[in-house]
Design a protein around this nucleic acid. Structure first.
Lengths: 248, 248
DNA sequence: CGTGTTTTTGCGTTTTGTTGCAATAAAATA
DNA sequence: TATTTTATTGCAACAAAACGCAAAAACACG
């Protein structure tokens, strides 16, 4: 088995299970511990995973809930500022949930007149602080993990909406694999959101670039804007610049 | 289980419940007390929580005092405790919004298995902290004043629900005039909520007793329970005791 | 084809990290 | 104060990682 194959195998395990044990890999791949450790180190150097004592963890699996201190808050504010530029008076906007979106909402101009649909209660509460924004919260089953509504009812309601712009956070984006996710229901949800907006902007901190997870949401071509905290010319974005995609 | 995963688990517990007991963690994670204590110490070193005798506390719990700014919080907690007694495993409950309801939700027992419908995003977020409660957020226009969803869509959806119990806060209750309100839309909403529940409990701090506002929601007979912070025998409640109404 | 170079891999050793135990100290509780 | 519960500390056993080294494989090039 070639080294590259081993690396791919490891990454597949990581994306599948969010974690992997060194000892498991030794068994599965039938090589020495040292080799696995070296492999993991190389993948760390490529910025593809986190190494911990005993194994490795997925980058996308970021210690799920830390509401006191928003992870990478500065980056998210930078993204929020860029996203605000897309919003014009009179627009109908659909948003997902997540801390990045929340930071974006806090940065909207006070006088903005617009209609916002959202599946996130927290986003709704934040949007309600703007006098001229009409807020419609899409109801349904409430997800304990993602803190958004999901399920059949949400998707049915989304089908009735025609939005000018959809803003969504993401757990992973990859130049070839497009938008991917780990959970089936969230995957379905994102597809429905994409379907009801003319354009979609993906808000994404740079460390979620170049990651592909189990379930495909859409190809990269279905996205109109990619917003990261990086400068336009940044090297990490070159593979995305080749696609038909506005980068902010 | 990797150490990092344990740390994440602990942080999730902390952020969910604002506190955690060492002994609980020992059981849940199946490791020795020493390990848990060391984990907690490491998280303290990372400035992620406070350690106290017997367990640990969330940092945000101490720093953010927005709880204490709730008006008449003690009364609302007293009401919440009484309201919890009405909730049994397996029930389908519908709740409104408001700080009284929110305090009630925080007092629910951890293991409770139930289904909650709610029109309040904040209540939904709070309910989501209970593993065995299914939370359905009813969507629609979002009211900037009351922080609940309202309007035609909400009423349509309410019509499809059959709840065992409805819990609502109120701005006014009067022995002769019944439940009253100031805003047309909220009035409609409350009527719809009443209609879809077998029984309705009104949570109401004593200073809202004996007040009648412009719009009638329902006569006092339509309410099955009145819950205030007062003792059962309190004089202010005498006029209500004469009605067919359980007083808690 | 042969020879020197680089890459890859596994082995032994040392170092570091992790965990549970026991003895003792401190804090909470009655 | 007496008793129980929880913390702290040092220690030993074990697991995993790092490091240097050498064998083997793959590669480059005359």
């Amino acid at each position: 088995m070639l080294k590259k194959e081993r690396h791919d195998f490891i990454m597949r395990q990581i994306n599948l299970h969010n974690r992997v044990l060194t000892s498991d890999l030794v068994q599965l791949l039938n090589v020495s511990e040292d080799t696995i450790r070296r492999d993991l180190q190389e993948l760390v150097d490529e910025n593809l995973l986190y190494k911990v004592h005993g194994g490795a963890l997925s980058k996308s699996y970021h210690s799920s809930f830390d509401d006191s201190t928003v992870y990478a808050r500065d980056s998210k504010i930078a993204i929020g500022k860029k996203a605000v530029q897309l919003i014009k008076d009179g627009m109908v906007v659909l948003t997902g949930g997540g801390t990045t979106i929340l930071e974006f909402v806090k940065l909207l101009p006070q006088g903005l007149t617009a209609t916002f649909f959202t599946i996130s209660p927290l986003v709704a509460v934040e949007l309600a602080k703007y006098n001229n924004i009409e807020v419609i919260l899409i109801g349904g089953l409430f997800s304990k993990n993602s803190q958004v509504t999901y399920g059949g009812q949400v998707i049915t309601q989304l089908a009735e909406i025609k939005a000018d712009l959809c803003l969504m956070g993401t757990s992973a984006i990859h130049p070839d694999e497009g938008l991917t996710d780990t959970y089936w229901e969230i995957n379905q949800l994102k597809k429905a959101m994409l379907a009801c907006a003319k354009r979609t902007a993906v808000l994404c901190i740079s460390e979620k670039l170049d990651i592909a997870l189990r379930l495909r949401v859409c190809p990269i071509e279905s996205i109109s804007h990619l917003i990261t905290e990086l400068d336009l010319g940044h090297e990490s974005l070159s593979r995305y610049r080749e696609k038909e995609l506005n980068i902010l």
